[in-house]
């Protein structure tokens, strides 16, 4: 269907105050507000190994008129980071529960490693996570990707060309896997792409980095609008709209209908 397909600005790699390494200031609400300010229409929250801020993020996005995806940046045993993107906070939370069981029990001192705040869309702190979310999960990269895919996620290896926490740094090259796309910092070597669509991502940890490496995606605007309305309403409507949104993103990735930041001549 090509009803109202057009190029929209998107960013699928962003942290919030739940990530120990992110600014405490960067609430899901501020993230959504910054994104709207940068003209983004489609945004994912991808905290390290957890999705606890995705419900607040979805509601904040609805308020700002930005279509939300609920994500997690999972860290495999080899310390390879992979973005797992879901259509609804419920699905992301369920996968996050599974990952929590794979998180090693490590001594965690928020003073040294950073706070992990679960907040609502009004920036009230609901809870401080007492497990260190920055650790590597006890599951290998291939199994992690397979599980995420089985749970309904779009699986996107993160910053594949980065000198740390990437498939290239940890594993030398991209092994075959169920990837919907790969994310890179700059135009990557074909060997790191696995024949997939290549997106850029801001990997924002502070408010001023939101949107710095956004990409464009050719996607149906009506589906984005439905996802925004759904995210505000919640419940079954949100689930259906989110599923449709995720399917549209997958379909755009399959068509390679994306323009990463370096192909947009700037950013």
């Amino acid at each position: 269907m090509t009803r109202t397909r057009a190029w929209h600005l998107a960013d699928f790699h962003n942290h919030s105050c739940l990530s120990p390494c992110a600014s405490l200031e960067l609430s899901p609400s501020l993230l959504a507000r910054q994104a709207r300010g940068k003209g983004l229409k489609l945004l994912a929250l991808t905290d390290h190994n957890a999705a606890l801020n995705c419900p607040a993020f979805a509601r904040a996005c609805a308020r700002e008129g930005v279509a939300p995806l609920a994500g997690i940046e999972a860290s495999s045993r080899e310390e390879v980071h992979v973005l797992c993107l879901f259509g609804s906070p419920e699905q992301a939370l369920a996968f996050g529960e599974r990952l929590l069981g794979l998180l090693p029990e490590l001594p965690y001192d928020p003073e040294k490693l950073g706070d992990e705040a679960v907040v609502d869309e009004a920036e009230n702190v609901l809870e401080l996570c007492d497990r260190y979310l920055g650790a590597a999960l006890d599951i290998d990269f291939d199994a992690l990707c397979a599980e995420a895919c089985g749970a309904g996620a779009l699986v996107v290896p993160a910053h594949v060309d980065r000198p740390m926490f990437s498939v290239s740094s940890q594993l030398g090259f991209l092994p075959p896997g169920p990837y919907a796309a790969v994310e890179a910092m700059r135009e990557p070597l074909p060997a790191l792409c696995g024949g997939c669509a290549v997106i850029s991502g801001s990997d924002a940890h502070v408010p001023e980095h939101v949107g710095r490496r956004a990409f464009e995606i050719d996607i149906d605007g009506e589906i984005l609008e439905a996802a925004i309305v759904g995210a505000g309403a919640g419940g079954g409507a949100a689930l259906r709209a989110g599923e449709e949104l995720l399917a549209a993103v997958r379909e755009a990735f399959d068509r390679k209908a994306v323009l990463p930041s370096w192909a947009r001549g700037g950013a």
């Binding site: 080899e78 290998d140 990269f141 291939d142 940890q170 594993l171 030398g172 090259f173 092994p175």
Partner: peptide, 9 residues
């Protein structure tokens, strides 16, 4: 680094 890529490298 126990991964099949270790063997390839």
């Amino acid at each position: 680094q126990a991964h099949k890529n270790t063997v390839a490298v």
